[in-house]
Design a protein around this nucleic acid. Structure first.
Length: 426
RNA sequence: GGAGAGGUCGCAUAGUGGUCUAGUGCGCCGCACUCGAAAUGCGGUGUGGGGCAACUCACCGUGGGUUCGAAUCCCACCCUCUCCGCCA
């Protein structure tokens, strides 16, 4: 959500920011401004009535205390009109507040000044590349073929026991999978200083409202009979840890890393990038989350991206870093980098991580604040997150990148202690 | 899942319809005393909002209700604790 003072005092900036994302908010913004001035006008008069009512009630109390029953009854009879007017005012106040909040949900976060202009992918900017596309004697196979030959995945039985979009990792495939997220959470927590979190996989509605999956994107979530939802990413439980709290200054920048399974219905996703492991209803991910001071958050974003990149560098997988243009960014983003790894078998760069700074947009919804010093007013923190990284595409990239002419796969050196072998073969 | 107890200003507690704009203790901040400190004394110490301001409104787990007036009474829900049952 955008700060009401900004909406009120600089609506032009909000309008321009939304346009950079290809969203026209002018009419809802005008509506907001009108409701806002109505609300403030109402509040002023309503509060005068409430103050008057409080005065009368207090005096009735005093009269009762002194035993002047008749005078108290007399005073009571005067409150009827006032009481009705207050009730009506409170009703209107509620309506106006609800109207304002509904409109506020339509205003996207304003892109940071460093975000490139443009509305589609061609306007994204590749800021750097690491490594090179590996060269193969023959056409490299896609990971589903490699995995099939080595018995690392059982997609058919996954479909049988759960449905399409659910993979069974088998044998060394299961072990490689476990090796990956074990190693990744170790790197982020032990080397990069993130506090390790193991969160609940089921969360309540308030948490999803806080991070913005609800009310708009409920269709993408699995919901239980108890009104709880399976998490689509560890971002949800982890970012909500400090919902409705005021953090001490010395706690910032707070860096948290969580491994979790993630569950997404993604109803309309079929058709694109769906083969093999590329789009799953259940997958595993190490998520990085930061709570930062506003003046430090953009530096922290750069560091967050680097923390995610380390994983690919150490594995030796070619990738590039893309700075998204306004139109390709999500609703609540202020600035976003995508990491895209090279998938030799698929022959494409695939998104493996999205690292975002939300500014105070998400914090305002979550009500996460911090206090610079005792006696100072609380301020909203900036929230950031990014994957570091998601395993299915990493798993598939390893199979594709390190496949050998004889059909085996070389295990990246640093994973060997975790996997227990240097080569996966028939 | 069953029975009981309870959710109050950072913490601990008081408050069961009207000077409660919530008392007290601890903590914290300021001042005094002191060479300095401790102890002591005095004052202050929540969040959000409206108003140029004086000032004012809302908030005692959440949401409703009764009343001129609700922390206090009524209803629903959430959470915590204790005991029982079940269980990895």
């Amino acid at each position: 959500m955008i700060d009401r003072h900004i909406l009120r005092n600089d609506p032009a900036a909000v309008k321009a920011g939304a346009l950079r994302k290809g969203i026209d908010v002018s009419s809802s913004l005008d509506q907001w401004l009108s409701l806002d001035s109505q609300l403030r006008e109402l509040k002023t008069s309503l509060q005068a009535d409430q103050a008057e009512m409080n005065r009368i009630s207090k005096s009735i109390g005093m009269l009762m205390g002194m035993g002047k029953k008749d005078e108290a009854e007399e005073a009571k009879s005067h409150t009827k009109v006032l009481k009705d007017r207050i009730a009506e005012g409170e009703g209107r106040e509620r309506d106006l507040e609800a109207g304002l909040r509904d409109l506020e949900l339509e205003f996207p976060n304003t892109p940071h000044a460093s975000v490139p202009e443009g509305l589609d992918v061609e306007n994204n900017v590749v800021v750097r590349e690491w490594g090179e596309k590996p060269v193969y004697a023959e056409n490299p196979k896609p990971h589903w073929e490699v995995a099939d030959e080595l018995n690392l995945l059982d997609l058919e039985r996954g479909a049988k026991i759960s449905g399409s979009g659910f993979a069974v990792y088998t044998g060394l495939g299961a072990r490689l999978q476990r090796a990956l997220f074990n190693w990744m959470i170790d790197v982020q927590s032990l080397e990069h200083g993130y506090r390790e979190i193991f969160p609940p996989y089921l969360v309540n509605e308030a948490s999803l409202l806080g991070t913005g999956q609800l009310p708009k994107f409920g269709e993408d979530l699995y919901k239980t009979n108890d009104g709880l939802y399976l998490i689509p990413t560890a971002e949800v439980p982890v970012t909500n840890l400090y919902r409705d709290e005021i953090l001490p200054n010395e706690m910032l920048t707070a860096k948290l890393a969580a491994y979790s399974s993630c569950f997404r219905r993604e109803a309309g996703a079929a058709g694109k990038d769906t083969r093999g492991l590329l789009r799953m209803h259940q997958f595993d991910k190490v998520e990085l989350v930061k709570f930062a001071r506003p003046e430090e958050s953009y530096d922290e974003l750069e560091l967050l991206v680097k923390d995610a990149e380390v994983i690919l560098q150490r594995l030796g997988i070619h990738y590039r870093v893309v700075l998204l243009c306004g139109g390709d960014m999500s609703f609540s983003n202020a600035k976003c980098y995508d990491l895209e790894l090279w998938s030799p078998g698929v022959g494409k760069y695939l998104e493996i991580s999205s690292c975002s700074n939300f500014g105070d947009f998400q914090a305002r919804r979550l009500n996460v604040r911090f206090r610079r010093a005792q006696g100072e007013k609380p301020e909203f923190v900036h929230t950031l997150n990014g994957s570091g990284l998601a395993t299915p595409r990493l798993f598939s990239a390893i199979l594709e990148t390190f496949q050998q002419p004889d059909g085996s796969v070389l295990v990246p050196e640093l994973l060997r202690p975790y996997v227990g072998t240097d080569r996966i073969s028939r």
